[in-house]
């Protein structure tokens, strides 16, 4: 069993980019209601780039560590790059096969981020 690897637990216990952004383009919240998970993300976009991200929320180790690892990696990436990512990208953070019931935990943060970028782009128009 290596789903709860040290790196996953570290990101769960000490999530990176946890909190709020003072300057942001958009805030988006979504959740897996049946799990009781919610992730809320602030994103600052500039010149087609993801300048800064912060998130808050409650959830299982998978959803929180996924959000932590994703926000860490995506800061400074172009919006198009992030939009092109598929669920497989976040699955790789876990280095093991996720059971079907847990894939939605892992992919929640990516869904929130991509939704934020779509709506952020609209707002910047």
């Amino acid at each position: 069993m290596d789903l709860y690897r040290e790196i996953v637990l570290d990101h769960y216990k000490h999530p990176r980019n946890f909190g709020n952004l003072a300057k942001k383009t958009i805030t988006i919240e979504d959740g897996n209601v049946t799990c009781g998970d919610t992730i809320e993300m602030d994103v600052l976009m500039k010149n087609g780039m993801v300048e800064d991200i912060a998130f808050r929320g409650i959830g299982c180790a998978i959803s929180i560590s996924s959000a932590s690892m994703l926000t860490e990696e995506m800061k400074g990436k172009s919006v198009n790059e992030v939009m092109a990512l598929s669920a497989d990208h976040v699955f790789k953070y876990f280095g093991t096969t996720l059971t079907p019931s847990r894939t939605k935990c892992a992919v929640l943060s990516l869904e929130v981020l991509q939704k934020a970028l779509v709506q952020g782009k609209e707002r910047l128009k």
Partner: peptide
């Protein structure tokens, strides 16, 4: 500890 993590382990 989230209930899903309990169940998963």
């Amino acid at each position: 500890i989230h209930s899903h993590d309990v169940a998963q382990i």
